[in-house]
């Protein structure tokens, strides 16, 4: 294991669909209409149905656990939702190592929309196995 500050971890590109939003609504039990009812979403000023913040968090969680594998343990994971994302557009998950302190490693993670705008930003701390 040779982790350095500044290293990017392998990216993960997702292609969310409205179908996936319905699937996620059912799996999480979040039936807020803005995630599957276009008319309702527009009626409160949204561009249409939008991705669940926690679905984007799930994507970023996968980004981190795919990279980490069984080499360590996830200790904290934090995300802030800064922008709206709609189905039918690619969602690019990326991450970078920001701190290495013995076995403690910190990462910055983010999700980008098609235009490269960071609509979700966050961080993760992991403890590498010795």
């Amino acid at each position: 294991m040779n982790l350095k500050v500044g290293d990017e971890i392998p990216e993960l590109v997702k292609h969310p669909t409205t179908r996936q939003l319905v699937q996620y609504a059912g799996a999480q039990g979040d039936f807020y209409e803005i995630h599957y009812d276009q008319d309702y979403a527009r009626s409160i000023g949204l561009p249409g149905v939008i991705l669940h913040g926690l679905l984007k968090a799930g994507f970023l969680g996968q980004l981190v656990t795919d990279w980490l594998g069984d080499r360590g343990t996830l200790k904290t994971f934090e995300v802030s939702y800064r922008g709206l994302d709609v189905p039918g557009k690619p969602y690019r998950c990326r991450g970078k190592i920001t701190k290495v302190d013995g076995r403690q490693v910190e990462l910055e993670v983010w999700g980008e929309d098609e235009g490269g705008q960071r609509t979700t930003v966050g961080s993760a701390t992991v403890e590498m196995a010795s």
């Binding site: 997702k14 996620y24 059912g26 799996a27 926690l54 968090a57 799930g58 656990t65 994971f77």
Partner: peptide
């Protein structure tokens, strides 16, 4: 299984263990 499928995460680890955001479900 349904939760991991909804995220689109095929890691077999999640058949036994909760993925990072599962507790909200």
């Amino acid at each position: 299984k349904r939760f991991a499928e909804a995220i689109g995460d095929p890691n077999p680890r999640w058949l036994e263990e909760a993925p990072p955001t599962f507790l909200v479900a």
